[in-house]
């Protein structure tokens, strides 16, 4: 994903801090005070968002274990039924999202570079090999563009018939 969510947040913070907030008049005390909270909140979001999913995975397993421990102590049938319903919600694997987002992004970028180099080398061979390599890239390009169209739809620059969530959930999206 380019730019990454973190890069967007960093740029937004810089523009607010460097370009926009200094233009607030000195007498706009309330606005200036809130501006400093906006920057603080943006710093928090930048620090937290790469770990948001992992944070919830950890909590899910920790609290599910606690529910199990408490049920083992004996509770009323009504309370047990409510607890079992809560435990029935989809559960992520315990190690899900354990790879730091930045490392995942870096790994994906390395893979994209490898794909391009292999593609160029195979194209240089010409003939059927080159045609087959082009076909692989075409399939990749279609899916890449579908994701990007959904990602940028809110800017108005792109249009997409499916939301980003739907696009990512489509068969083959993570095959």
């Amino acid at each position: 994903m380019i730019p990454s969510v973190d890069r967007h947040l960093e740029a937004i913070r810089e523009r607010l801090a460097e370009t926009i907030f200094p233009m607030l008049p000195p007498e706009a005390e309330f606005a200036r005070e809130q501006a400093s909270f906006v920057l603080m909140a943006l710093d928090l979001v930048r620090a937290a968002h790469p770990h948001a999913y992992r944070y919830e995975v950890v909590e899910r397993h920790e609290y599910a274990a606690a529910v199990g421990d408490l049920l083992a102590l004996g509770v009323s049938p009504g309370a047990e039924a409510e607890a079992r319903d809560a435990l029935a919600a989809p559960e992520p694997r315990a190690d899900e999202a354990s790879i730091p987002l930045a490392a995942l992004i870096e790994g994906n970028r390395a893979l994209k570079t490898v794909v391009t180099r292999l593609f160029e080398a195979l194209c240089a061979e010409g003939g059927e090999t080159a045609d087959s390599a082009r076909e692989v890239l075409r399939r990749l390009a279609v899916r890449q563009v579908a994701r990007e169209r959904a990602l940028f739809a809110s800017t108005g620059y792109t249009r997409s018939e499916t939301s980003l969530a739907e696009t990512l959930a489509q068969p083959g999206a993570a095959s």
Partner: peptide, 11 residues
């Protein structure tokens, strides 16, 4: 990062 559409276009 690389982009497959750009690689195809360059080719």
């Amino acid at each position: 990062e690389e982009h497959p559409s750009m690689a195809l276009a360059r080719d």
